[in-house]
Design a protein around this nucleic acid. Structure first.
Lengths: 238, 238
DNA sequence: CGTCTGGTTGATCTAGATCAACAGGAGTGG
DNA sequence: CCACTCCTGTTGATCTAGATCAACCAGACG
């Protein structure tokens, strides 16, 4: 593990205000600093594997990390994405259970590992940090539950459109000509794995959505040409 | 709300050792006692509705409670079941968000409501109780995530068999003639809603499973006639 | 009794999976 | 620079799990 902690300091970390460490005091932060191992990850690397024991948590500085679950038959599902500012692997650490899924780097990332021993110390010292983790867990249940409900009742079309709207809420913008635009953060096959479909189905769906005038696809860029119809078909409005 | 607290005391509650209040001191328990409103619920009653604000938590003494989610199109999904000893509604209370699903009584139940104000007090006084809630939340993420992954990749058959094995693990027994037996805790339509299928599909599936000699159905009673095949088709072994 | 609820069955339809081929980069290596 | 392969995505032909629509049945129950 390449440790380049010298170049990155928690105290000056630009995304610290989004993290679980946001309300630590300076001396407490120094504990994190000492227990921190930062390094670059390339696309395709796995941070930890399903079934592994946890020995700390990972704080994403930049990049994109996916949670992938593989069942006994080898079926793979992409359960969610985590971006800069998000802490991953906290659940196994706090529950002392093996990781229930793998954390896979989906785009070049810079990630800090924080040793478990330091966390244990801080959890005692800082109730606010514990509260942050609790709130993180509660939010994660909500997200997963909503996805689960949708997966039980929704069609591939509605799940796909919903996913696009999630991306849109996070990263949507208006381009030079005023079009509502999103950049899809992951490749088509990963999108398929996020909604429990085959890549071929996504391909065909993309074509019909384009023919029906809801969206326009240019590689990973998506123009929303009929927002009302998209929201309706995504099951977001009645 | 019929309050019959006199008949039930937390101090002597037989399922307290399973609950979040298990390691409260006597004076702390008295705070729960004072803030407690217990009553009987009939099948079909709703304890709280999706979208409602939370004002406390519900501790199930006896009976069965389902978490039901209904989307904007009116599609209903049954996200999970909670039995005696389980606390429901804690998530909304802790996150101060509206309930994301409804709690529906699925069989005659006796349930204690505990006022939020008391909980807030206790969370400050008893870090152990906070830890219990944290662990509860972490366990719930794990369960929901596993269900979500399965719903993305599995067939109706595998989800149905898996659900039966879950029931079997909780309540399975050997009957007089030594058959592996489970009692399904909910009706067919609810099973359908738990796996995202139509009741008709379950009906047909039941017949083929019986023909194939995996299971035998007698109303809500299920005899497991070929455990290996069931485990395999449920995706629980390779 | 009639009415309701929960469950079954049949006929048909369709969304989406599966199998198979192919095409356009992007690297890589000679 | 070309040839090669890998990777991602697309398209076509076909198949099937499961939905949908509709009728029906048995027990519970006021």
């Amino acid at each position: 593990m390449i440790d380049n902690k010298s170049s990155h300091q928690c105290a000056t970390c630009p995304i610290r205000h989004k993290t679980e460490w946001r309300d630590l005091s300076d001396p407490e932060l120094e504990i994190v600093e000492q227990a921190k191992h930062a390094r670059d990850y390339e696309t395709g690397e796995t941070i930890y594997h399903q079934g592994d024991a946890s020995d700390g948590v990972y704080c994403i500085q930049t990049g994109l990390v996916g949670a992938r679950y593989i069942d006994v038959d080898g079926n793979s599902a992409l359960l969610g994405l985590n971006e800069a500012g998000s802490t991953v692997g906290y659940r196994s650490f706090l529950s002392k259970q093996p990781h229930s899924n793998s954390a896979e780097v989906l785009s070049p990332s810079f990630i800090c590992f924080i040793e478990g021993a330091a966390l244990t110390k801080l959890l005692i010292a800082s109730p606010q940090m514990g509260e942050r983790f609790l709130q993180h867990a509660l939010a994660d249940i909500g997200k997963t539950e909503a996805l689960y409900a949708r997966s039980l009742t929704g069609s591939v079309k509605s799940k796909f459109l919903h996913l696009i709207m999630v991306f849109y809420k996070q990263h949507g913008y208006q381009d030079a000509s005023g079009n509502l635009t999103v950049q899809l953060p992951v490749k088509r096959t990963d999108i398929a794995e996020m909604i429990g479909a085959q890549p071929e189905s996504i391909s065909r769906l993309v074509r019909t959505l384009q023919n029906d005038g809801l969206l326009k696809f240019e590689g990973r860029k998506v123009l929303v040409t009929d927002m009302d119809a998209v929201l309706f078909d995504a099951g977001l409005v009645f």
